[in-house]
């Protein structure tokens, strides 16, 4: 029995290690490749670089204008994700009595926003943003992102709020608190894990989104990180080392944030993902 248990544990670790390697090895190779010069890619495909080309990082940082695009990415993602999540929580609170037909309709209405292909709306969106005079500012990205973040937020938060005990808000009502106060001081705090998963899911998506800022970020100063990286990948030549260096630079912030907060990350995700 003891032996069987030991074997079981051994097999378990073997399986998990193998799976982890499948994840880590490709990522590690991109980091290695980002230090290679072009001839190195052919001379020695999977080995370490013959000489470490730090130059790749210097060029990538400078030519892909990462200091500007990084700042933009941070501002856009932080603003859009917080506003969007707050609005989604408001909506979900409003919809939490799902038995009402109107609320049920609105729930379906919001959630079906998940299905809209972005190529379909990009041109009308552009025209609209121009009417509002938002083009050329970061709001040209923030406003659509807020709207596009709502479906997922509503999808995750509505069922969570619906499962909260009714007494919770009733207690507030007896104390004479307004509905808004109840929402802000009672509902929001207990909703924290769900909010975290919405912030993470939408935040990762907004940070990585490429096509929308490509078209909507009209001025060079308003471009985000992925667009800066891709505009760096020239039409006529392929400097692989530089490209991989820029991919590493663009990805590092999220990965570091993820590793630092991985417990909250995954806990937040599991909170919302299953119900609904």
């Amino acid at each position: 029995m003891k032996l069987r248990r030991a074997v079981e544990v051994g097999v378990r670790h073997f399986v998990l290690c193998a799976a982890s390697l499948v994840v880590l090895v490709p990522i590690a190779y991109v980091v290695i490749a980002s230090f290679k010069t072009i001839p190195d890619f052919f001379a020695n495909p999977y080995g370490l670089p013959e000489e470490w080309a730090w130059q790749n990082y210097v060029s990538a940082w400078r030519d892909a204008r990462i200091s500007i695009t990084l700042t933009n990415s941070i501002i856009v993602t932080a603003t859009a994700v917080s506003v969007s999540t707050f609005l989604a929580a408001l909506i979900s609170y409003g919809l939490s009595r799902r038995e009402r037909p109107l609320a049920m309709f609105l729930y379906t209405f919001f959630v079906s926003g998940l299905l809209i292909p972005v190529q379909m709306i990009i041109l009308p969106l552009f025209v609209l943003l121009r009417q509002f005079g938002l083009l050329g500012t970061l709001f040209a990205l923030i406003c659509p992102y807020i709207a596009m973040g709502l479906p997922l937020g509503v999808l995750i938060l509505t069922p969570l709020i619906a499962t909260l005990p009714r007494d919770l808000s009733d207690a507030g009502r007896i104390d004479g608190a307004s509905e808004l106060q109840i929402f802000l001081h009672i509902i929001l705090p207990v909703l924290r894990p769900g909010l975290a998963s919405v912030v993470i899911l939408n935040g990762v998506w907004m940070w990585n989104e490429f096509f929308i800022p490509l078209v909507l970020a009209l001025k060079a100063d308003t471009q985000t990180l992925p667009v800066g990286i891709m505009s760096f990948v020239g039409t006529y030549n392929t400097e692989w080392g530089l490209i991989f260096a820029s991919v590493v630079i663009a990805t590092a912030p999220v990965v570091i944030a993820y590793i630092l907060m991985s417990r909250q990350f995954v806990a937040g995700l599991t909170a919302g993902a299953v119900k609904g």
Binding site: L87, L90, L106
Partner: peptide, 8 residues
């Protein structure tokens, strides 16, 4: 409660 959905 439905008024809460308005801004979104």
């Amino acid at each position: 409660h439905l008024w809460f959905t308005l801004p979104g």
